[in-house]
């Protein structure tokens, strides 16, 4: 059984999310340096274990690990023994036996990272599992939104999203991003409305603490944030939708719809975007779009997640953290829970 990893946003709770946002603030600063690297995780090994394709998530985790000076290993199902019929358990136990501290797992089946966590010694980070969760995406979205809301208010970022109204639009039913985002946004006090045709919404949202709406225009009048989800073309084959055209017309952020929006409303998308379906091309690149900030912030947030998971293992202060590594030292202070909070002073 592995040590506590990050399988669901629920593992963190509000306090855990806030801690990660604070840590990410420090690491964002590291990323701005000429040499964006700290020795915080020197000697640690982070393996990205992806059974499903990915561009940004894998690269983002690898960049995060490297900026923390961890060693990285890469596993991709397409080039592995999985193609020879090796089971999930055998595959991850093999990787574990090579000696890794963190296994970042993406899998097409909901719950696979939770199963892996039961089999390996490494700490498991869920990098997206089936239609379940994608916790680091939700964390980087919280970080990005907090930054955008602060910029809008002309103030420093605050710890929560209290009062922020967010519409999550599109294929919520099949979206792991949506499930993690609902948990994270709600934990930080935001109000969330899910918008889409009933065939693309979960069978029930009982206990989610969200509203559900089917009219995008009405919903957009009431929110600060429009968070669009990718629409996969296989939803058409499953007869969940009559046509992509009708979907775009009713639930896409088209040019016409965008023109009517409040100028302060911001647009987010976890990527990959299908321009012209859920989002018009020019909106994706417009100033109201936070899409590139989301990707950019992903690295600092994932540094924070990796650091927080391994921080308990590290001596504090630890070698390499002295002599001009003040950010690293602050980060350790912030991340290592100290009895009674005495060192927080």
């Amino acid at each position: 059984m592995s040590r506590a990893g990050l399988l669901s946003v629920e593992d963190l709770g509000r306090q855990g999310i806030v801690e990660i946002l604070h840590l990410a603030d420090s690491f964002a600063e590291v990323s701005e340096r000429a040499i964006p690297k700290v020795p915080a995780l020197r000697g640690k090994t982070v393996a990205t274990v992806f059974f499903e394709s990915s561009t940004r998530t894998r690269l983002s985790f690898e960049a995060a690990a490297k900026r923390l000076s961890a060693d990285t290993m890469t596993f991709t199902a397409a080039t592995s023994s999985v193609t020879k019929g090796e089971s999930l358990r055998d595959t991850v136990e093999t990787i574990d036996a090579l000696g890794v501290d963190v296994m970042v797992v993406r899998h097409g089946s909901s719950g696979a990272p939770a199963q892996v966590a039961g089999w390996v010694d490494a700490c498991v980070v869920n990098a997206g599992d089936g239609q379940h969760e994608h916790p680091t995406q939700a964390l980087l979205d919280c970080f990005t939104l907090r930054e955008a809301m602060a910029r809008r208010a002309g103030a420093d970022p605050v710890d929560d999203l209290a009062g922020v109204r967010i519409a999550i639009v599109g294929d919520v039913r099949h979206s792991r991003v949506a499930r993690s985002c609902v948990l994270a946004f709600r934990a930080l006090g935001a109000r969330v409305v899910l918008v889409g045709p009933p065939t693309l919404l979960p069978p029930t949202t009982e206990g989610w603490g969200v509203e559900v709406a089917h009219d995008l225009d009405a919903a957009l009048d009431e929110v600060d944030v429009c968070y669009l989800l990718r629409l996969q073309s296989e939803r058409l084959r499953e007869a969940l939708l009559p046509s992509l055209g009708e979907y775009s017309e009713r639930y896409g952020l088209t040019r016409e719809r965008a023109r009517r929006l409040d100028p302060d409303l911001v647009v987010m998308h976890p990527g990959p975007m299908i321009r012209g379906v859920e989002i018009a091309a020019e909106i994706a690149s417009s100033p109201r779009s936070l899409v590139t900030r989301q990707v950019h912030n992903g690295v600092a947030v994932r540094m924070a997640v990796l650091f927080r998971l391994l921080a308990g293992d590290l001596p504090a202060p630890f070698p390499g953290m002295s002599g001009g590594m003040s950010v690293g030292a602050e980060v350790v202070e912030a991340a290592v829970p100290v009895a009674g909070g005495a060192r927080r002073g």
């Binding site: 909901s110 239609q131 379940h132 009982e206 206990g207």
Partner: peptide, 15 residues
């Protein structure tokens, strides 16, 4: 089973 748990867990359910 399709219901509150399947919705939360992201496992396609049978109603």
């Amino acid at each position: 089973h399709e219901g509150a748990w399947s919705s939360r867990l992201g496992i396609p359910g049978q109603p």
